[in-house]
């Protein structure tokens, strides 16, 4: 057993009943993550998307979580009240089954970083934007086993590299990297 340490856990809670489907969270996210900040608006670059099917009265804001090179079987269907939801409606995985959470120019995955920034934001931008409180933010302190410091990863870069490896293979990526380093 490793040593127990305090860790801050950040949670964005979603209240589906309060969402009106206006997608302002997408605008906030896309604007905040534009480079330079706020310089462009494009919901396709947002790391939160409102999955919308009005005929099923379905509005579900989901955030991009993990990258996967493969589709899942995607066969699970949940009925809530009288509405049928596909598992994909709640799934934040960045996968090839849909065009969500892929950067529109490069196709690279876009992952929610809870708006980590310097100086830090009080709340992630989507939560700040959602005046309807469909999105709310909580920080909790929990005790967890201490992780090996060496395991800390620069998350976004690694995510991108992993998807490039999946797409082109390690050899092609290494060659490109070597060539660019030379140049």
């Amino acid at each position: 057993m490793g040593e127990l340490v305090k860790k801050k856990v950040k949670v964005i809670k979603v209240n589906l009943g309060k969402c009106n489907g206006c997608r302002y969270c997408e605008i906030a996210c896309a604007a905040f993550h534009a480079n330079p900040r706020y310089s462009s608006i494009n919901p396709a670059r947002s790391r939160i998307r409102v999955v919308t099917d009005i005929y099923n009265d379905e509005l579900v804001p989901i955030r991009a979580t993990d990258y996967s090179k493969a589709e899942c079987d995607g066969r699970r269907v949940y009925t809530v009240g009288d509405k049928e939801y596909s598992e994909c409606s709640f799934c934040g995985t960045i996968c090839p089954a849909r065009d969500l959470f892929h950067e529109p120019d490069s196709g690279l995955p876009l992952k929610c970083d809870l708006c980590e920034s310097d100086p830090p934001q009080e709340e992630p931008l989507c939560v700040q934007a959602c005046a309807r409180d469909a999105l709310t933010y909580e920080e909790k302190e929990v005790l967890v086993e201490a992780e090996d410091e060496a395991q800390v990863r620069p998350a976004e870069m690694e995510l991108g590299l992993r998807s490039l490896i999946d797409k082109y293979g390690v050899a092609a990526l290494t060659d490109t990297f070597a060539r660019m380093k030379k140049g």
């Binding site: 906030a28 330079p36 706020y38 310089s39 462009s40 608006i41 494009n42 396709a44 670059r45 005046a131």
Partner: peptide
């Protein structure tokens, strides 16, 4: 279906004004 960018002239100022207006 569109996945392109829209640019505005004064992004940060506009965004701040808009967030207040939305609320």
């Amino acid at each position: 279906r569109g996945t392109k960018d829209i640019y505005v002239a004064h992004p940060q100022e506009l965004y701040e004004e808009c967030r207040k207006m939305y609320k």
